[in-house]
Simulated assay, not measured.
Amino acid sequence: MTTPGEHEALVRALLAVSRSMVAVAARNLAAMEADVTLPQYRALVLLATAGPQRSAGLAKELDVAPSTLTRMCDRLERKHLVRRFHRDNDRRSTWLALTPAGRDLVGVVMRERERELSAIVHEAKVDASQECLDLLDRIVAASGELPDAVWWERWEISADPVDGVMLP
């Protein structure tokens, strides 16, 4: 059983790791000159993870106002990274989906992050024990994220046709 002091130490260590992961993502986006902010990139990742979504649902997932999401998606649409559409059975809701270019951008950034994380793990001489891997898997699951293999499966189909219409 973890003591309160150990719990606090783990939370602080994870907070530091979280900052470093955000820094890795920001560096990768900047190096690619993708002209995408971290919040915009997070929206793209969520669309890659869950597929097409109602704009209201994506705003809730990102914890932003619908008007903020609208402006964000205006920018992403101008960059040809997302597209808006209406489903035949739901004309009132606006849906968002990745375009192939949006999916490819997410994939390239994720692969670059993987490369950089591999170098960090090598430099830190981290022991990839089963206990360490299990801990990380439990943290990923508790945070609501998908295991890596499942995430890549979802990414692979994230820009497939919607309602039989190929995305631009």
Results as ranks from 00 to 15, higher is better:
residue 118 S to D: 11
residue 146 L to N: 05
residue 107 G to C: 10
residue 78 R to N: 05
residue 93 S to I: 01
residue 158 S to W: 09
residue 84 R to N: 04
residue 108 V to T: 15
residue 96 L to P: 05
residue 125 K to C: 10
residue 101 A to I: 01
residue 151 W to E: 15
residue 124 A to M: 13
residue 89 N to F: 08
residue 154 R to W: 11
residue 154 R to Q: 13
residue 93 S to A: 08
residue 155 W to P: 13
residue 162 V to M: 02
residue 158 S to F: 03
residue 124 A to V: 14
residue 136 L to I: 04
residue 118 S to V: 11
residue 71 R to W: 04
residue 119 A to C: 02
residue 101 A to C: 04
residue 129 S to T: 08
residue 150 V to E: 15
residue 73 C to S: 10
residue 86 H to Y: 06
residue 126 V to F: 09
residue 154 R to P: 13
residue 101 A to H: 07
residue 114 E to L: 11
residue 114 E to I: 14
residue 144 G to L: 04
residue 104 D to P: 09
residue 108 V to W: 07
residue 118 S to R: 10
residue 79 K to P: 00
residue 85 F to L: 06
residue 130 Q to M: 10
residue 106 V to W: 04
residue 158 S to L: 08
residue 96 L to Y: 06
residue 122 H to C: 04
residue 127 D to P: 01
residue 98 L to A: 07
residue 159 A to N: 08
residue 105 L to I: 13
residue 157 I to G: 03
residue 97 A to N: 03
residue 76 L to K: 08
residue 119 A to L: 15
residue 78 R to E: 06
residue 130 Q to D: 07
residue 105 L to V: 12
residue 99 T to W: 00
residue 101 A to T: 05
residue 139 I to W: 02
residue 160 D to K: 11
residue 143 S to L: 10
residue 152 W to P: 01
residue 98 L to E: 11
residue 83 R to N: 06
residue 160 D to L: 10
residue 125 K to N: 09
residue 82 V to T: 12
residue 91 R to E: 04
residue 161 P to G: 05
residue 149 A to V: 14
residue 95 W to M: 14
residue 154 R to L: 15
residue 74 D to E: 11
residue 129 S to Y: 02
residue 78 R to H: 03
residue 115 R to D: 09
residue 123 E to F: 02
residue 110 M to A: 14
residue 79 K to H: 04
residue 149 A to W: 04
residue 92 R to G: 00
residue 134 D to F: 01
residue 108 V to R: 14
residue 143 S to Q: 09
residue 99 T to P: 01
residue 141 A to M: 07
residue 100 P to G: 08
residue 143 S to D: 03
residue 127 D to M: 06
residue 94 T to Y: 00
residue 157 I to Y: 05
residue 137 D to W: 02
residue 136 L to Q: 02
residue 115 R to N: 09
residue 132 C to Q: 05
residue 70 T to P: 00
residue 89 N to V: 12
residue 162 V to D: 00
residue 149 A to L: 10
residue 148 D to I: 02
residue 87 R to Y: 00
residue 159 A to K: 04
residue 90 D to H: 13
residue 129 S to P: 00
residue 156 E to C: 02
residue 87 R to Q: 02
residue 110 M to Y: 13
residue 102 G to F: 14
residue 127 D to H: 03
residue 90 D to C: 01
residue 124 A to F: 08
residue 155 W to G: 13
